[in-house]
Amino acid sequence: MHVVKARVFGQGECGKCGDDIPRIGFEFAFQPIVSFKAQSIFAHEALARGAQGESADSVLGQLTPENRYRFDQECRTRAIEQAAALGMPESLSINFIPNGVANPRACIQRTLRAAANCGFALSRLIFEVTESEKVADPEMLVRIFREYRKLGIKTAIDDFGAGYAGLNLLARFQPDIVKIDIDLIRDVDSNKTKQIIVENIVSLCSKLNIVPLAEGVETFDERDFLLGIGIDLMQGFLFARPAFKAMSPVDPIAWSTR
């Protein structure tokens, strides 16, 4: 386990996630991220769901400037606790809200405690920031990423190619993983424009020592094209759908070659 000696900040030090702020009810579904070359699960992404399995939108639609800090904190700690309870042996990928972090060092303390209490090594954590959310303070996001890297936590940009951050964020900080947005992956095997864009993202990642990951892979043709341009990590319905409060096994057919 990655052992961290750090000062534990109290809730009141940033005043953003105190007990007086109402909680949002939610659970998690877990979807595997696979390494095709190894034909194994690389990680599981924790996807927010309603208490009865309702969509992520039903949960995220309840976020306000007042409760986003607390929600972000509880997402991290509960994802770790649920992964540990499931006996997850692989890495755990968790989305976080960059605008929901008031102080990088203070806001990571609950995560560190949860990981220590569950025996979950920090090196098995991946924190994803979605490119589709407009980051209020890009320099703060860079400080957050750097703080996580010091602790041994991996970082990823989610939905790359779909939103606000993109190349400007890569110019400031190079995460461990870039997750290429599903809209670029859909029908990439037959869409020449998408092929050019995705190929250039893969080339850029290679030059910056970043691992590319394809989101939303649903067909064998998409999979085979992506393999052909050097993408090994994939996620999508071809391999497994998210499982509510459980880990999805990979469909063995997804490994087959044609």
Rank of each mutant, 00 (worst) to 15 (best):
G100C: 04
V129A: 11
N99E: 08
F71N: 04
I80Q: 05
L92E: 03
L112K: 07
C75Q: 11
A115C: 07
A114V: 00
S55E: 09
R105A: 14
E74R: 04
P89T: 03
P65M: 09
L92C: 05
G119A: 02
A48C: 14
Y69D: 02
P98R: 11
R105C: 13
G100R: 08
F96K: 12
T77L: 08
G87D: 12
E74M: 09
R78G: 09
N99P: 00
S123N: 14
A84S: 14
A114L: 02
S93R: 06
R113W: 04
D72W: 03
C107N: 15
Q52K: 07
C107S: 15
N117V: 09
Q82E: 13
Q109D: 15
I108H: 13
A114W: 03
G50E: 05
P65Q: 08
A56M: 15
A79Y: 04
G50V: 06
A56D: 09
N67F: 03
E133N: 08
C118R: 13
R124N: 10
E66C: 06
L92A: 04
S123Y: 10
P98I: 02
L63A: 08
L125T: 11
A51W: 11
V135D: 05
F71G: 03
H44N: 15
S93L: 01
E90A: 07
T77P: 07
S55K: 00
A46I: 00
S55N: 03
V135G: 06
I97E: 14
G53C: 05
A102I: 00
A85H: 03
N103A: 09
C75W: 06
A106V: 07
A79P: 06
T111W: 00
E131I: 02
V101A: 08
S91T: 14
E90M: 07
L125D: 14
S132Q: 14
I94H: 08
L63E: 06
E131S: 02
I108P: 09
S123R: 14
P89I: 02
V129P: 09
D72T: 09
A79N: 10
A121F: 12
A106K: 15
R70L: 06
T64V: 03
G87K: 09
Y69A: 05
S55T: 05
A48T: 11
R124G: 06
A84C: 03
A48G: 11
N99K: 12
S55M: 01
N67R: 00
A56V: 12
